[in-house]
Design a binder for these strands. Sequence first.
DNA 1: GCGAGGTCTCGTACGCTGTAAGGTGCTCGT
DNA 2: ACGAGCACCTTACAGCGTACGAGACCTCGC
Lengths: 227, 227
Amino acid sequence: MDSVWFGKPRPGSGQPLGLSREVIVRKAVEVLDEHGLQKLSMRKLAAELGAAPMSLYWHVPTKDALIELCLDEIYGEFDLPAPDADWEPALRGMMHSLRHLALKHPWWVRGIGEFNSIGPNAVAMADSMLETMLRAGLSIAAAAQSVSAVSSYVMGHAIAEVNFTARGGMDAPPPDLGKIADLYREKHPRYVAMLGEQEVWSLEGQFEFGLDCVIDGIKARVTALRS
Amino acid sequence: MDSVWFGKPRPGSGQPLGLSREVIVRKAVEVLDEHGLQKLSMRKLAAELGAAPMSLYWHVPTKDALIELCLDEIYGEFDLPAPDADWEPALRGMMHSLRHLALKHPWWVRGIGEFNSIGPNAVAMADSMLETMLRAGLSIAAAAQSVSAVSSYVMGHAIAEVNFTARGGMDAPPPDLGKIADLYREKHPRYVAMLGEQEVWSLEGQFEFGLDCVIDGIKARVTALRS
DNA sequence: GCGAGGTCTCGTACGCTGTAAGGTGCTCGT
DNA sequence: ACGAGCACCTTACAGCGTACGAGACCTCGC
């Protein structure tokens, strides 16, 4: 059957499709947001783009490279602070932005641990954080350590959050919360008691508590190192 | 050829091998330590055990379940603190132990983000941390938040460390450090300047700096909440 | 006009993966 | 002696990343 093909060229013929590195990355991020890292496959991605699987490999050398591009794409959503803001609100804002990215793109936090983060957007973010702490009066080394400290905390917490909500949040069904409690009640009563506390389940509050702790510690060092 | 088979029963016949959940998990951890999460396959694991691939499925329902067992196995290596230790040194010790586990088993930190951590050993660890902070005089909720704060930091930092050393550490070869510097020198001079600082590359020192920050913050809250 | 070369897309194929379904023989209780 | 159940195996399937090479198309130099 040699029927007419409307709109874009027919997949299956060698016609020029609208593929490009950016288009592929964008669609990949879309798929990742919806289905997660494990379920992304070159074949399905190609299908979503109306292309044959191997067509992607002209624009992207390998799947891992594509994922690195996707990771950096998310770094690009990071909110840079106003260049004249005070260091503390600027730092807080950046950390909230970081957490926001993580919760919006759960696959992103998990992926960061397995791939390089030296793409342009990742570096721009790191540079911006660094600059903020330099403006606070720290040396380069002290600024780098401070940035590492806060962002390590934020990423660690984000991973825990993402993992938690991925399993159903506070109304976790599969191995019901009650069953866990029963399992460990006698051996680890404090743990079980914690599961019953309301405040514990406020991820927002928990995040803020830890962030305050780290920033307090840094603040003390900023004033000490600056004098 | 029907030659003799020495020692253990020949794989390929239905003879009873020494398989068991524990044996499989132990070997899996061995493989994971050596080759990482991505390279672990049921087939290779079975081969290492001298068994057919599908034999493992008698003892373990699925690969993901096996990985969860492996993760909890590592939690089992965690050093519990002496039950009468002061809270601060106890907490510090536990955090060092946690970091030690992460550096020893890089696949572990990465895996934690994708799987449940409610195995017996993981819960024992959490319970022990919780108990330490309760002994410091905190409420259950405050203790839980404190534990979440420090361990989030430690895990976040551990991921960064593992990722960093996996790429060759400070003598990173593939996209040479110099090339990265050249690439970003004009756009992000502060970032490049940081790469040249010696102190920045001391992971140990960096870890300790951040840990001090978080614990300082917690200490302030402990004394405030206790009074 | 016409061939050369570059750019993009595709078909085929290989070796790998997790695991569902269904055997096979051993060991034991009766 | 014989069925039950346990431990292990074979076979098979659907899916994966991607190496390789074959076109189709566009843009040049001539």
